[in-house]
Design a protein around this nucleic acid. Structure first.
Lengths: 346, 346
DNA sequence: AATGGCTGTCGAAACGTTTCGCACACGCTA
DNA sequence: TAGCGTGTGCGAAACGTTTCGACAGCCATT
């Protein structure tokens, strides 16, 4: 391994001078600097991150922490990682994957204690998330992808759920629908602590009301079987429904099956819209489903950028609050005008 | 930060003794050891990874290197990362995400020069991959997910393509099919350098021949539109075909559309089988498609495990060759017996 | 009673950086 | 000519570990 000593020797300067020249940390005569840079280039010198980090207390390494979800990751979740890694890389940082096995907090406590990390990016954030308190207490810089119940003093990037609700309602009323329903995730795996499930339920309800639509919910589903049953129950209870919005892509499979059970067709007899499902996945259904595609890559990117910004900002000013990113409406073949504008089927 | 000095002081021993006791690196009297461990626990001591790595040359950090795919990651690719991270974590290692922006090699060269890494895990391996030579030359331990053209002397984990071909042929002949076709990825994005595309084409052809089936290929497709056209062309050229195997899930969308164009139905008029698509995705099609699900998580796991094994093995014996992992056949509603066992449709 | 081999502990060096006080040689001003 | 800032460069200390040679006891062997 080529060390700074080797470079210094070749350039006939002291190690400290070589360091200063290479980092621009204090002025070095132009000619000397040139000589040092040449020597470094010729030798193929790469600074040792460990030694540097040991003294400077900065490693330019971030951890991405994700509590392993019971059901394995979907495409959406993993895109966070891709986006965050790309943004970090562009800014000269690296991203360390930190899955937690048993105890979410222990892993985090360990990692932050080792001096390896400059900051932490939290995924799968719950409405009340113990990790936030831990990191705050330990004074470790962090940012969230998603947000807690009260994120006012935190750095976070999350989906703009209010806008999402408005977009769904707008799309449907634009087509002439007056009665919609929403099949949410049950959120069972998170005991009602999962932000997207809670927020999306609230915001879609609010937007439907705002738009003057009749609205039904409470028929939640995570699997195809549940989705099928949910749609039947839903239509039995609210026969006026002309448009259904679905969160879970598995449930959507069941919804389409239930439509078929009834001898109906999508979109003629029922408009179906997915929410927080990527266009790539929505395109695999037949008919291709309209979806509000989550800005997963962008959220990952913004999370990493915010964290790095926070690290660069020496002054550590007052927390700026977070950033909300809109979803993209991708219209498929599953939404159209309702067959009967009286809202009742024969 | 609590350092080893603090622990040593509290336990009334020398720093070196504390180090030895905590690492078990050389015998320490039981009572002394006990005292040191208590002190460490009481103080909440966490060893500094940087300092340790600086002297021991071992950081227990692995990099996962992936050339950014133009189209963003699919579920399959990301599962590699998840699996690798999980396996690494279980073995006490961490995984650093290393996307490459511009120059794939420069990033790698930089990373390995910094002393931060114990080894590298390579994803998206091409048949001739420059990264392999670079790492070999630099004497950096590495393992592949996938494999090069001649992987005899390398550590790798890859799909068992021969078995995959046999499984497809076996499934179809078992149902009574005698004439199959295969719609591959075009592999255009990789200029024919992408292992799975090449190997799967060879192995399915070989297995079909072995099973005594008639076989057609050369109608490749990456998108829905291409898939649709491909199936039409294919059936025009080989009307005896009763079963089609498809690699690209996007192309499968088009294949189903083409079947509908003809007024046919799956599986009654045509059996459709996907290959290297997750069951989760295959279940979104209607009818649910039969698929050979890639063992993505397992490949990630095995890759990480092999790399770590290689690192632990002081002796660095002769390279052991790689490991081939089979796919899982998940039967959907898209495969059945051919309608006409003479292999000709009316 | 002297020798030799253990066992257990210590102190110092080393890993490759950054940081910081200090020294030296200028050229300028008083 | 003395004094003083300024531009450059040097050397040593420090970061928190691991590693390794040295050595003090102690018991067993001669």
């Amino acid at each position: 391994m080529i060390s700074l000593r080797d470079v210094a020797k070749r350039a006939n300067v002291a190690v400290s001078t070589a360091s200063a020249a290479l980092n621009g940390t204090r002025p070095v005569a132009a000619e000397t600097k040139q000589r040092i840079e040449s020597a470094a280039a010729e030798l193929g010198y790469r600074p040792n991150v460990l030694a540097r980090g040991l003294v400077s207390k900065r490693t330019r390494i971030l951890a991405l922490h994700y509590p392993a979800p019971a059901s394995g990751f979907g495409l959406t979740e993993m895109q966070f990682a891709t986006g965050a890694a790309a943004a970090a890389s562009e800014l000269g940082y690296h991203l360390l994957l930190s899955p937690d096995n048993a105890d979410p907090l222990e892993e985090l406590r360990y990692l932050t204690g080792t001096g390896l990390l400059d900051g932490v990016l939290l995924m799968e954030v719950r409405l009340d998330d113990a990790r936030v308190e831990l990191l705050t207490a330990q004074n470790v810089p962090f940012a969230l992808i998603g947000r807690t119940r009260r994120p006012e003093h935190l750095w976070f990037a999350d989906i703009d759920f209010a806008r999402l609700g408005a977009d769904v309602a707008g799309h449907l009323t634009g087509l002439g629908h007056r009665a919609m329903a929403f099949i949410n995730h049950t959120g069972a795996a998170y005991a009602g602590e999962y932000g997207p499930v809670v927020r999306i339920g609230q915001e879609i309800a609010a937007a439907a009301k705002e738009a003057g639509m009749s609205y039904a919910d409470g028929f939640d589903a995570d699997t195809a079987e549940q989705g099928r049953a949910a749609l039947h129950d839903l239509l039995d209870a609210h026969p006026e429904t002309t448009a259904v919005t679905v969160f879970s892509d598995q449930a959507a499979v069941g919804v389409l099956a239930a439509v078929e059970d009834r001898g109906w067709r999508v979109p003629d007899d029922l408009t179906v819209v997915m929410v927080l499902t990527s266009a790539q996945v929505a395109a695999m259904f037949r008919p291709q489903l309209t979806t509000l595609e989550p800005p997963s890559l962008e959220l990952g990117r913004r999370g990493a950028q915010m964290l790095i910004e926070q690290l660069s900002d020496e002054t550590a000013g007052p927390p700026p609050g977070g950033e909300l990113v809109p979803c993209r409406l991708v219209i498929g073949d599953s939404s159209t005008t309702p067959r009967d504008d009286k809202g009742v089927r024969a």
